[in-house]
Each structure stands twice: as C-alpha cells, then as structure tokens.
Write a protein that binds this DNA or RNA. Structure first.
Lengths: 190, 190
DNA sequence: CCCTTCGATGTCAGTCACTGTCATCACAGT
DNA sequence: ACTGTGATGACAGTGACTGACATCGAAGGG
C-alpha cells in the first residue's frame, strides 16, 4: 500500500457531495471537505480549480461521448438536430446507470445558484463541442451553432423531465418527446 | 447638493467597466473600483451583490422588455418561436443606441470565464421569463420551456453576429437570418 | 542494498471577495 | 432646534484560493 490512501480525487468528490447535502454548499468549507476525505485544504485545490468544480468532474466525459456520437453518426440525410437528438438518446445509460448519484447531485445543484452557473457554462462548452462535430459534417458555422444550442435545450428539457419524474427510467423516450414538442413550437403553425 | 455625489451606483458601474478594460477582471479589486468612484469597498458591496454583478445591472430591464413584448403580442396564429423572434427584433434599439458601451462590455465578458457564467445565468432567467409569457398565452409548460430556450439560442446567435460584425447596425435583420437558419436545421430534411 | 529522482501531499503565509456591526452625517419632517 | 431616516464610512472577521517550500514513500539505476 502506498504512502497515501488511493483515489484522493474520488474521495474528495464523494466527501463534497455528502457534505453539500448535509449542510448546504455555502456552509461547507473546502477545509471541511478535505478533512472528511482525510486530506488538507491545499490538496483539495490541487485536484479542483475551485470549490464548485468538485461536482463537475464528469462533465468532460459526457461532452466527449456526445461529440463522438455526433461525429460518428452516419452522414445521413437527417437534419442536424436529429443527429444531436440521436446522440442524446445514446447517452441515456450514463444517467440511468447512476440514477441515485445523478439525482443527489442535481438536488444539490438545484439548491445553489453558483452551482447552477457552473452547470450552465459546462453546457455552453458542450454546445461548442457539438457545433464542432456538426461542422465536421459540413454544416456551416452559424447553423451548426444554432443546432448545437437547440440540442442543448433539448438535453436540458429531457434531463429535467427525467429528474422530475420519480418513475422515469429510460432517458431516450424523454428526448424523443421533447424533440417532437420542439419541432412543433418551431414550425410555422396553422 | 447632498452630502454625497449623486448616482453612486452609476459611478461604480462606469468605474468598473473602465478598470476591467484596463487591467482585466481578475486584477481589478473591489476596493480599486470603489476608490475610482470616490467610494469605499463596503459601499460597492451594498450596491452589488458581488464583483461580477456590477456589469449586469441592465439585465433585468432587458428581460422585462422582452417578456412584455411576448405577453403583449397579438394572440396570433404564429408559432411560439415567432413570437419570441418578434420580441427580439423589437429590442434591437436597446443595443443599437448604446453600441459602444455594449461592445466594450461584451469585450470584457469575452475575456473572463466567471463573467461568462454570470451572463449565462442571466440568460437562463430570461428564458424562464419568456416561458412564463408563453404560458400566459396558453402554451403548455414543456413546449413553452423549449420555445423559450430556443428563443434564447436565437438571441445569443443574433447578438454574437451583431458584436462580431464591425459594420452591423441593425439588430433585427440578424434575428431574422438566425431564425431562418434555425428553422432549417430543425426541420426534417430531404 | 544504497542513492537519486519524482510525484503527491503537508505546512504556512498572504491576498482578496464578501459580511456583520456600529458610527457618522446630511436631509426631511415636525 | 429635535428627531428619524437613508446612504455611507470604518473596522474586524471568515473563507476561497495561491505561491513557496518541506516532506516522504515509491521506483529505478547502479
């Protein structure tokens, strides 16, 4: 066994989620999180750029998964938004397999505005990545940006529905439902 | 004349924008901004909840203007997204009349991630307000949310185009162009 | 088996964002 | 003149975050 307990980063992430849940994000101190993980405050900030970031370690992987799905999509005749929707459906298991964790984490975020800010900029980065993937498929800059932003709106809606519904299991159907509604409110009516 | 110079809040806002432009957001201290405005750090934080907020005083007014436009829209047969697009076009003068200020402010924001986070949550609040206005028109909850989110994507794109193009004057045409592209990437193709 | 290097952590001092509390002072109304 | 009020100043305190340096166990070369 090494000098230190293994997986310091993971211990910090778990300690933070617990402490945030118990006393709230604002009352939890970085030193308190570190102590609970058997580490010091300084080490906390070596693993995470700031106190909020400890909740967003998985954002990068989700982004890469979705961008890869879009990039690897068959060069189909589908609209750009449909390609993104398909990627979102494919990412369902990421949430479904960690149902309890994802819900607990989202509850903490829902209670704190600063964490919501951080979540929003992660989604903005996701949008940029999706736009890049679309451009690789030949979609022009601004349409790619618009489709990516709309795709993120789709994700936010489907995800919120998945969180709100205690009985929800599969993510993909919520994506499809949101996509249908989105096309309806976008299309000219009558 | 009063004990104090008038418009402390406005003086702080101008001092902050200047100082951010000169030394960057991170290097500018709250005490420095206050001193430039002839006030103390404590007074700065009485006017603004935090250092970032000094740049976002006008967000509430824009939100109310856009929500009012949507709410006052004729109960038309147009799609919800068209109602939002019309509101965005109507808000053009807000930017056009303060061209230099808006661009300087956006340059500062583009240089700092924390400010981008704050901007994103202001846009999220705008989205909520727009969704509420649509619900007042009888649009169901989730379609209203989706249309509002998409409308904000429309705004972001049109605004970025307006900022990027040094020759851009009118805002409305950029909204129309983005709306057309959005409908194209959303609709089923072929 | 000793020595060197290296990576992860601890220690400590310092800056700055932000807050609570109390004092101050002009102005308005009485 | 007297008093209440609102905006500000003064000051101490907490906690997020950073830079610099010390420590220690592991891995590899000799």
């Amino acid at each position: 066994m090494g000098r230190w307990q293994p997986d310091a980063r993971g211990r910090l992430e778990r300690a933070a989620l617990e402490l945030f849940g118990e006393v709230g994000f604002n009352q939890a101190t970085a030193a308190g999180i570190a102590a609970r993980a058997g580490l010091t405050e300084r080490t906390f900030f070596r693993h995470f750029a700031d106190k909020r970031e400890v909740l967003f370690g998985g954002a990068g992987e989700l982004q890469e998964l979705l961008a890869r799905e879009v990039r690897d999509a068959p060069r189909s005749q589908a609209a750009p938004l449909d390609a993104i929707a398909a990627a979102l459906e494919a990412a369902g298991p990421v949430f479904e397999e960690r149902r309890a964790f994802v819900r607990q984490r989202q509850g903490v975020i829902a209670d704190n505005v600063e964490l919501q800010e951080r979540e929003l900029i992660k989604l903005a980065r996701l949008s940029s990545a999706l736009a890049g993937a679309l451009r690789d498929h030949g979609v022009p800059d601004w349409p790619a940006t618009l489709a990516a932003e709309t795709g993120v709106a789709l994700f936010k809606t489907a995800f919120q529905r998945w969180i709100d519904d205690p009985d929800a299991r599969e993510f993909a159907p919520l994506v499809r439902r949101s996509l249908a509604e989105l096309k309806a409110v976008t299309a000219d009516s009558l």
